[in-house]
């Protein structure tokens, strides 16, 4: 079993809030991902059994939303905004530099499991472009050197 007893209890509490059992799938995915970091096929199968749906229907939801992960994630999520204002201020070059610095491409995780790198559409910080987020923390008005230093400080 991947899903812990504690998570399972929390899922059951969510299910009780919805008129249809499967309505609680989204909160359940959040709970499970908080426990396990990502949604593995085994996890999807356990959830499918709980919600009385096909495992593939769990994966439909997981793959639909960007913030559910269908593969193992690094300890830190680094997401660079590449929407229009940030791109005008050099965000795409910034992303390329970071890719080279970490030796991975956007969407990948460093082999040591330290960082998962990605790019994102508009994080609402256009006035301070270019920017990136590490987890829930914004880092704004970036230049390449500052960004590299920030990443190097991550354990």
């Amino acid at each position: 079993m991947v899903i812990s007893a504690e998570t399972r209890a929390a899922i059951d509490a969510e299910i009780a809030k919805y008129p249809k059992r499967r309505g609680a799938l989204l909160p359940a995915l959040h709970l499970v991902q908080k426990q396990t970091g990502w949604i593995s096929p085994e996890t999807a199968q356990e959830l499918a059994a709980i919600f009385e749906i096909h495992p593939i229907e769990v994966m439909e939801v997981v793959t639909f939303y960007n913030m559910f992960y269908d593969r193992p994630q690094g300890r830190h999520h680094v997401y660079v905004c590449t929407n229009l204002p940030c791109s005008l201020r050099g965000a795409r070059d910034l992303l390329k530099e970071i890719e080279q610095h970490l030796g991975i491409e956007s969407g990948e995780t460093t082999p040591d499991g330290r960082i998962t790198l990605g790019h994102e559409e508009c994080l609402g910080a256009c006035a301070w472009a270019p920017m990136l987020r590490i987890g829930a923390q914004y880092h704004e008005n970036l230049d390449v050197e500052t960004a590299k230093r920030l990443l190097d400080e991550l354990k």
């Binding site: 096929p41 096909h54 495992p55 593939i56 229907e57 994966m59 439909e60 793959t63 639909f64």
Partner: peptide
């Protein structure tokens, strides 16, 4: 697959222009 044999092997994964038909790993 869901409605006739009831086996439900196929699904649409992802969204927008990344949407693809997929099977569940190992099924």
């Amino acid at each position: 697959c869901r409605e006739v044999p009831g086996t439900g092997e196929l699904s649409v994964f992802s969204r927008g222009d990344r949407s693809v038909i997929e099977t569940f790993p190992g099924q």
